[in-house]
């Protein structure tokens, strides 16, 4: 699943490690989500959106 997690995280000058710690997953999980190789649960999507101060639409909604 394409998403804007990496773009938003880098925009906020946050490292993968910091985001991983905030949402209580491993850095590998964050890396996989950013690459679109793992589809997180809604619960984790919400946690990531909150940690980055964005909405689910901002991060995970695909616009053509």
């Amino acid at each position: 699943m394409k998403n804007k997690v990496k773009f938003t995280r880098m925009e906020q000058k946050m490292t993968q490690e910091q985001l991983a710690r905030q949402v209580r997953v491993t850095r590998q999980t964050i890396g996989l989500i950013e690459k679109g190789e793992y589809n997180p649960t809604l619960q984790l999507c919400v946690a990531i959106a909150k940690a980055l101060g964005k909405t689910l639409d901002d991060l995970f909604w695909e616009v053509d």
């Binding site: 490292t15 850095r27 590998q28 890396g31």
Partner: peptide, 11 residues
């Protein structure tokens, strides 16, 4: 295997 996998994911 973990290192190879993680290398691809690093920012």
């Amino acid at each position: 295997r973990s290192y190879w996998k993680n290398r691809e994911l690093i920012d």
